[in-house]
Amino acid sequence: VTVDIKGMEYHFDNPEEAKKFAERMAKELGGELKVENGTLKVE
């Protein structure tokens, strides 16, 4: 699973970990979490 945090890509084997990480980063950065082509994106 790929997580894109404002252009920086992180790769996770575990989808649950990827989702938790993306949600935490969205909250910390005040960004919006989206799913695009199987990639979790925070913008």
Score class of each variant (00 low, 15 high):
residue 6 K to W: 14
residue 39 T to G: 07
residue 15 P to Y: 15
residue 32 E to G: 07
residue 32 E to M: 13
residue 43 E to N: 11
residue 2 T to R: 10
residue 40 L to K: 02
residue 32 E to F: 15
residue 5 I to S: 01
residue 13 D to M: 09
residue 18 A to S: 01
residue 27 K to T: 09
residue 1 V to K: 06
residue 24 R to D: 09
residue 17 E to P: 00
residue 29 L to Y: 07
residue 2 T to L: 10
residue 1 V to N: 06
residue 35 V to W: 15
residue 39 T to N: 10
residue 39 T to R: 13
residue 15 P to A: 13
residue 7 G to H: 03
residue 7 G to R: 01
residue 22 A to K: 03
residue 10 Y to N: 00
residue 43 E to P: 05
residue 32 E to Q: 14
residue 27 K to M: 13
residue 28 E to N: 06
residue 33 L to G: 03
residue 17 E to V: 05
residue 39 T to E: 06
residue 40 L to Q: 04
residue 9 E to I: 15
residue 23 E to A: 08
residue 10 Y to E: 00
residue 6 K to I: 10
residue 19 K to G: 03
residue 36 E to G: 09
residue 11 H to R: 11
residue 6 K to T: 08
residue 24 R to Y: 13
residue 23 E to P: 00
residue 1 V to M: 12
residue 35 V to E: 11
residue 20 K to S: 11
residue 33 L to I: 14
residue 1 V to L: 12
residue 24 R to T: 10
residue 32 E to K: 14
residue 40 L to W: 13
residue 30 G to M: 08
residue 20 K to D: 09
residue 1 V to P: 02
residue 30 G to I: 04
residue 26 A to M: 08
residue 26 A to G: 03
residue 41 K to L: 09
residue 8 M to H: 12
residue 16 E to C: 13
residue 18 A to G: 07
residue 12 F to A: 01
residue 8 M to I: 14
residue 2 T to E: 02
residue 19 K to I: 14
residue 10 Y to P: 01
residue 10 Y to T: 01
residue 13 D to W: 08
residue 6 K to D: 15
residue 42 V to H: 03
residue 23 E to C: 13
residue 12 F to Q: 00
residue 3 V to C: 07
residue 27 K to N: 10
residue 25 M to R: 05
residue 5 I to M: 03
residue 27 K to S: 10
residue 36 E to C: 13
residue 10 Y to L: 03
residue 28 E to V: 11
residue 32 E to Y: 15
residue 16 E to K: 06
residue 36 E to I: 14
residue 38 G to T: 05
residue 3 V to R: 00
residue 25 M to I: 08
residue 3 V to W: 01
residue 23 E to H: 05
residue 35 V to Q: 09
residue 21 F to N: 00
residue 43 E to Y: 15
residue 43 E to W: 14
residue 36 E to N: 09
residue 38 G to M: 05
residue 6 K to A: 14
residue 28 E to S: 07
residue 16 E to Y: 10
residue 29 L to N: 05
residue 7 G to Q: 02
residue 4 D to A: 14
residue 27 K to E: 10
residue 8 M to E: 09
residue 17 E to M: 07
residue 17 E to S: 07
residue 42 V to C: 07
residue 15 P to N: 07
residue 37 N to F: 07
residue 24 R to M: 12
residue 43 E to V: 15
residue 27 K to V: 10
residue 14 N to F: 04
residue 19 K to A: 09
residue 24 R to N: 08
residue 14 N to E: 05
residue 20 K to C: 13
residue 1 V to A: 08
residue 39 T to C: 11
residue 12 F to N: 00
residue 1 V to I: 12
residue 36 E to H: 10
residue 28 E to T: 08
residue 41 K to D: 04
residue 4 D to C: 15
residue 34 K to E: 05
residue 42 V to W: 05
residue 7 G to S: 02
residue 34 K to I: 13
residue 33 L to Q: 04
residue 25 M to D: 01
residue 32 E to V: 15
residue 14 N to D: 13
residue 41 K to I: 12
residue 10 Y to Q: 01
